[in-house]
């Protein structure tokens, strides 16, 4: 799928469900991801959004970019509200108070809302088996409040709360593997995606929406503001994240792993780091250490795909 984006992307709907004119930063790949998600889901969707960048930029009172039913909820409750809506719809349809039709309930949050604050609600909703989709748009820190670290921040990245200095080289913990946590709930569909591969992303969101039961999609969203990268590099950075193995693109359908984009040879991780200010301080030695662990994890993932 990923290499088909010459003409195939033109076949996506031209209808916008996440309208332009919102207040995201220049070069924001997260807004792009949300736009693609909205296109993939189409009109019959209800979106529940936790606090975060995408909530802030898309709903400055009295405006909204959303052209589907959308509700903003507190930081930790996206998954629980989504599960409530799903249960409500089911009941109303059963009682005949609503016409029977397929409606996708989507819970959405950033890495903070998903990995840190809302993980409990998410875990519960996944475990209860609600028929909904949860999408994490991961820009690897609390960006809208001023780039504070989250558990999604990668090792070595400098943020305002994990500043790189002489003693500490930025974030000193490894990025939380949220997709694996979701997969550990034995839900029918888990995937990772990135808006630099738009067809792959759309395809995965559609699959998630078509899945009976809970589905989780983790989307890496390049953030030029927080990553200290040139705004025109957002798409390329997303590709580099995949090509270097930092953020492998895969899906887990009923427990079966599949790399949706596989590279016979991974690109040196330096290619990815060199465009980002948050990694500027890393020494060659540290870069090599990181690369070694990335390759190991990539291999482990590949082994699971066999």
């Amino acid at each position: 799928m990923e290499n088909l984006n010459v003409y195939a992307v033109r076949l996506l709907t031209q209808k916008e469900y996440f309208a332009p004119g919102h207040r995201s930063c220049q070069g924001c790949a997260e807004a792009l991801a949300v736009r693609l998600i909205a296109k993939a889901l189409g009109r019959n969707a209800i979106v529940v959004q936790a606090t975060g960048c995408m909530e802030i930029v898309a709903s400055p009172l009295p405006f909204t970019s959303w052209e589907v039913p959308w509700i903003h909820v507190a930081f930790e409750t996206a998954a629980s509200v989504a599960s409530g809506i799903e249960a409500g719809l089911k009941a109303l349809m059963r009682k005949g108070r609503l016409p029977k039709k397929r409606v996708t309930v989507l819970g959405m949050g950033g890495d903070g809302a998903t990995n840190d604050i809302g993980i409990m609600a998410l875990s519960g909703a996944l475990e209860r088996g609600h028929d909904f989709v949860y999408i994490c748009t991961d820009n690897e820190a609390y960006m809208n409040t001023g780039i504070q670290r989250s558990s999604g921040t990668p090792f070595g990245a400098s943020t305002t709360t994990s500043p790189a200095g002489r003693v500490i080289p930025g974030q000193i913990t490894w990025k939380k593997n949220m997709a694996a946590i979701a997969a550990a709930h034995n839900i029918p569909y888990v995937a990772t995606a990135c808006p630099s591969y738009p067809l792959d992303l759309v395809d995965k969101v559609k699959k998630a929406a078509g899945t009976k039961g809970p589905a989780y999609v983790h989307i890496l969203s390049v953030c030029p503001t927080g990553w200290r990268s040139p705004t025109e590099m957002s798409i390329r950075l997303g590709r580099l994240a995949a090509e270097t193995g930092v953020f492998p693109l895969y899906e887990i359908v009923n427990g079966r792993y599949r790399l949706t984009i596989d590279f016979p040879k991974l690109r040196p991780i330096r290619d990815y780091f060199k465009y980002q200010g948050r990694f500027r301080h890393l020494t060659d030695e540290m870069t090599e250490q990181i690369e070694e662990r990335v390759h190991r994890e990539y291999q482990a993932l590949k082994d699971k795909c066999q």
Partner: peptide, 23 residues
């Protein structure tokens, strides 16, 4: 081999295969 037909097919019967250096 742009694959536009593969993506647009509503019943998914066109099919594409990528093997090392061939599509």
């Amino acid at each position: 081999a742009c694959g536009a037909c593969v993506t647009v097919c509503p019943v998914n019967v066109i099919g594409m295969r990528e093997e090392s250096d061939e599509r």
